[in-house]
Design a protein around this nucleic acid. Structure first.
Lengths: 234, 234
DNA sequence: CGGCCTTATTTGTAATACATAATTACCTTA
DNA sequence: TAAGGTAATTATGTATTACAAATAAGGCCG
């Protein structure tokens, strides 16, 4: 389930290696990286590959290069915190509870708003997609089927908002959260406990009742917050 | 006010040039770019510079390069929609009303939630910062002073949430919106009309009343939505 | 002492050569 | 003839070298 992110390109490996070091705090903000020539030699890559990697890290706001001065790690306020890689590196290096809280907080902001927007604007096709996902949840025979359908449900709601910014945000947050948790999963015995919540959201979206959808989704995320459990570090 | 984004690096210019073309739709998703050698020659840069630029665009999810196949523009679902550059390119090329609506929608989701979170968690220093910004708004003698203080107020609230993901999201959205609008500005005559709204938010944050802060901020953004006006394309 | 200029150092850009992977076409073989 | 493998082709990937440009630092000169 956890993808190893096997980067095929050499510069991609360098990006991840340096990115992890920086976000992980092993190279602190304000600190300078070694000269390109040295660093390249030390990492056993050409200066070309190293530079391509550094341009990517620059684009993510992690570093800043200037002639003569060298390349230095920028302050965290400049980091692209919403970049998928940056988030992944944080997840890998900062297993503190408060970061998870921040991710959960974002999720709890987005989802009710998305439900409301979906109820306001969904097309018949988008409603059908939510409906299909709901039926799959209702029919799920295993925890695996359930979680797959559950994710599909939330994605369908997001798509129904017709706001790709919201979709993108949710996607990034959800991926990062997935590193830590099995979302909304109780025991295998009653993994369908939240089905009524989902039904209320679905119905509200069908009837185009934004506030009802918002409240239903709010209750769902509040309820699920206490039920998410730490994933084993397998 | 509108920064021309004069990129000093050559590859940075190439990034913006290609990024604009792609996001602007002049090079459609699925379409292949010319071979690196050809494209470099056509843009009057070395293959080295072009490749550094392409790595950045890859990191933003806009393109995908594979050996033999070439480099092709990826589908929009893979774009890093929350990347500052990608947003800027969209703003520059897609002046349709519905995109502005999406930005405003995001803002209206974030701000009330931020106000609530700020009321819950703000430190004395963070409260002081909000307070300072409010006083500056109250004392503003010109529309310019007002808008500066207004932005400082909202930034202070965001910082008080202690959630850098929210801060980053707001920052990106606000920058993009700034391309289009003078936010919350009425006529020069009564530019302080929203001061009472701000006071309610400030007081709620001071008294640690999350729901009050949320509602006050909600009223403020709803009120301001109808008062934002199109900026002249100066 | 202060301002200007030279110099040294680091990143920026270019050009070239070759490696690698993936597609395509051909060629072998049952 | 069709299936399969194999070699040629062609794009990006990587390495190396050389030089340009910017700028911090130190020395020179007024």
């Amino acid at each position: 389930m956890v993808k190893p992110v096997t980067v095929r390109n050499l510069h991609g490996q360098v990006v991840h290696e340096l990115g992890r070091l920086i976000v992980g705090g092993e190279i602190a903000p304000g600190q300078n990286l070694p000269r390109e020539e040295l660093l390249a030699e030390r990492m056993n890559v050409s200066r070309t590959a190293l530079r391509e990697a550094m341009k990517v890290l620059s684009a993510k706001g992690l570093i800043e290069s200037r002639q003569k001065t060298g390349t230095r790690v920028r302050d965290t306020v400049h980091w692209n915190q919403l970049d998928a890689d940056v988030l992944a590196w944080r997840c890998a290096s900062m297993p503190t509870e408060d970061f998870v809280e921040k991710l959960v907080e974002m999720r709890e902001i987005i989802e009710p708003a998305a439900a409301a927007a979906a109820a306001r604007r969904r097309s018949p096709e988008q409603l059908a997609r939510v409906d299909t996902a709901y039926e799959a949840m209702a029919a799920a025979a295993s925890l695996d089927d359930w979680t797959t359908a559950d994710l599909a449900f939330h994605e369908a709601v997001l798509h129904a908002t017709q706001n790709e910014l919201m979709i993108s945000l949710f996607s990034v947050i959800e991926t990062a959260l997935g590193t830590y948790f099995v979302l909304s999963a109780r025991t295998a015995g009653d993994f369908k406990y939240s089905l009524p919540h989902h039904k209320k959201v679905l119905d509200a979206i069908r009837r185009r009742q934004p506030e009802v959808a918002r409240q239903a989704m709010t209750r769902m995320v509040i309820d699920s917050r206490s039920n998410i459990r730490r994933r084993g570090k397998s």
